[in-house]
Design a protein around this nucleic acid. Structure first.
Length: 462
RNA sequence: GUGGACGUAGCUCAGCUGGUUAGAGUACUGGAUUGUGAUUCCAGUUGUCGUGGGUUCGAGUCCCAUCGUCCACCCCA
């Protein structure tokens, strides 16, 4: 019989168990910090009604969305009709729907976190996925929302990445109003054109100064060289300290309301971030950060690893003035930030920044003598009661095989209980990671293992 | 969505201008005497050379098609 090739579609990340443990540890760290800052969990369905999801017709999102159709509906559907359901492509649009739907049951400011998979029908490439986890936090206000929240989110992000222990990183900030005001002062007032210019400026780090200058002065944009020079000089700024950032904002000069407001907001946010406990070394003003998404209206964020700029942004977000205008007449401003956990994990693994993964199974009770199986099971039960994740070997086999199994499965401790140990009332503990073994009495066993495990948790070995 | 490269064991690849039964490393399996993995030594298994057609005495190698994968752009986590 012909076999079907077992395979997954491109652009999905499927992990072996030990890698999955590492990935979940990452999610745990993210969740822990989200909760520590007082964010509440929600989950929304992977599928939404197409008309809810695709409120703004056309454009990138529609090109990338996966449609879903039940078999019955598929047959009934007429040619060219949009299927009734679609997979969510981010968590922000479902959040908007959720807030509009439950508006009268929620407490505002509504602080929620959400860690779920989203789907994008992109052509898969290195580090780009069709199915991936997003870990989002947003604060949604009713009618208004203080800009102070814009300073709180970087504090959460700082704590997350510090916990993940992946090396030095910088949260980079900018403000859309400031950019809009500046472009207006240069004579660029058309919103669409401004967006295109900002997207181009955003590529500064990737394409280089000359390429961006040529594009902006070229036929497509046709901006005069003097204005482009002014613009590039402006966006080239990166602060190295809070004082430097504030000084730069001071000398910007005024000219219009948007620029003034952007300046004030940025100054307040930058100053408050410090008060929220983020060291100055971990955030900066970067006037080239623009974010492509056009729903951002104020503060925008991007986070990068200092030693691995090629990885790009590992966490992005910003301020939006009206989250759910498509679903409710209420004005719901918000600020949010998103960690692409799947890409982050993948990039960290590629860059060799992940610590060695260990099994969630902490101890394996070996089977020396099949007749003693009840004794082994009893030992395992005892360890589990003491909070140690324990597996007992239930099939008879050579001891060497059992050790090999433990090694491959990433289990750290193998417990040997043979005739000698039974006679003495002890257990032999082999620590596969330390390549060492010792003997303890049976009543000391659980406590001894716990000490070893806790030490490893404090100082993880690689 | 637009443009470009590449498809040979599970993985990484070699295979010179077409020439015998298609190779290496790694992985995997077994063994190296009685209760010890990873390291070392020995032995072994693994392939419709992506698929279909064509040229040729002869195709992994050349040509065409097709499918698949990857890369760049677009966009983004």
């Amino acid at each position: 019989m012909a076999l079907t090739q077992a395979r997954t579609m491109p652009g999905v990340l499927e992990l072996l168990p030990l890698d999955q443990v590492a990935f979940q540890a990452m999610l745990d760290a993210i969740r822990r910090n989200f909760e520590r800052f007082g964010f509440l969990p929600i989950e929304t369905p992977v599928m939404e009604y197409s008309n809810v999801l695709l409120t703004k017709q056309g454009g990138e999102t529609e090109r990338q969305v996966y449609f879903v159709q039940s078999t019955g509906a598929l047959q009934a559907a007429r040619e060219g009709e949009v299927p009734e359901l679609a997979l969510r492509f981010d968590l922000t649009v479902p959040l908007a729907r959720y807030v509009a739907e439950h508006e009268h049951e929620l407490a505002f400011p509504f602080r929620r976190y959400q860690m779920q998979r989203v789907y994008r029908g992109e052509r898969a490439q290195r580090g780009r996925f069709r199915e991936f986890y997003q870990c989002d936090i947003d604060v949604i206000g009713k009618d208004g929302l203080s800009v102070r929240y814009d300073a709180e989110l970087p504090a959460v992000i700082y704590n997350v990445f510090r916990d993940l222990d992946i090396g030095p990183f910088t949260i980079q900030l900018n403000n859309r109003k400031l950019m809009r005001g500046f472009l207006e002062r240069l004579g660029l007032s058309d919103a669409e054109r401004q967006g295109a210019v900002l997207r181009e400026v955003d590529k500064l780090d990737k394409r280089g100064l000359d390429a961006v200058r040529n594009t902006l002065t070229g036929d497509g944009f046709g901006i005069d060289a003097a204005a482009v020079a002014q613009l590039l000089d402006f966006v080239g700024f990166r602060s190295r300290s809070l004082a430097e950032a504030l000084a730069r904002l001071d000398v910007l000069g005024g000219g219009n309301a948007a620029l003034e407001q952007g300046r004030e907001e940025l100054a307040e946010v930058l100053t408050l971030i410090r008060a929220f406990g983020v060291p100055e070394s971990h955030y900066a003003l970067n006037l080239s950060i623009a974010r492509g998404l056009d729903y951002y209206t104020g503060t925008v964020y991007e986070t990068t690893l200092n030693d691995h700029p090629q990885i790009g942004s590992i966490c992005s977000g910003g301020r939006y003035e009206n989250l759910a205008s498509h679903y409710t007449k209420s004005k719901l401003p918000g600020v949010g930030i998103s960690i692409g956990a799947t890409r982050l994990y993948w990039q960290l693994r590629e860059a060799g920044l992940l610590k060695a993964a260990h099994s969630t199974v902490q101890a394996l009770v070996a089977q020396m003598d099949e007749a003693e199986l009840p004794r082994y099971l009893e030992l395992a039960t005892e360890l589990r009661a003491a909070g140690i994740n324990t597996e007992a070997v239930v099939e008879p086999g050579k001891l060497a095989r059992q050790f090999k199994y433990a090694d491959r499965a990433g289990i750290r401790f193998v417990l040997v209980l043979g005739p000698d140990e039974i006679a003495k009332g002890t257990v032999t503990v082999k620590d596969l990671r330390k390549q060492d073994q010792f003997e303890v009495t049976r009543n000391e066993l659980a406590a001894t293992l716990r000490v070893e495990i806790e030490q490893a948790a404090v100082m993880p070995s690689r």
